[in-house]
């Protein structure tokens, strides 16, 4: 399933990411706000859910090669971070739901439950 497909299905808002980028494949989901944990645990192709919206999340997303960053609870994202995401070709999505709900829905969708 691509980032675009799952975003349509679960109603995520696309904050950064070109249509070409959105064809990236999603293979899992991980949530953690401690960057050291995220760095070690986020797998390539994961949707990474975090409440952080500072520049460091772009670095961690690039380094882990996750499918995208997903910001829960409609948390506002700094412009600087959006600009950096575009520059580094990192996709940022947002949703009004909580991290827990998002994990549940993404997991269910990916496992086709």
């Amino acid at each position: 399933m691509t980032v675009n497909e799952i975003s349509q299905k679960l109603d995520f808002k696309i904050i950064a990411g070109t249509s070409e980028l959105l064809t990236k494949n999603v293979s899992g989901v991980y949530t953690c706000d401690m960057l050291s944990y995220a760095m070690a645990k986020v797998n390539q192709g994961d949707i990474w859910i975090t409440v952080h919206t500072n520049l460091n999340v772009i670095a961690v997303a690039s380094l882990t090669d996750c499918a995208c960053i997903l910001i829960p609870d409609n948390i506002e994202i700094y412009n600087q971070t959006i600009e950096r995401a575009n520059e580094k070709e990192v996709i940022i999505l947002t949703s009004g739901k909580s991290a827990a709900e998002l994990c549940y829905e993404i997991y269910k969708t990916l496992k086709d439950l």
């Binding site: 390539q44 520049l55 460091n56 670095a59 380094l63 882990t64």
Partner: peptide, 29 residues
């Protein structure tokens, strides 16, 4: 923090380009 991680990202790119395994890229990163 506008530059933090740039060195690591650059090295990651080099390793990916020379074709080392994803596991090595990940551990190095």
């Amino acid at each position: 923090f506008t530059i933090a991680g740039e060195a690591s990202s650059s090295v990651r790119k080099i390793l990916s380009q020379i074709g080392v395994t994803p596991d090595v890229v990940k551990r190095t990163s």
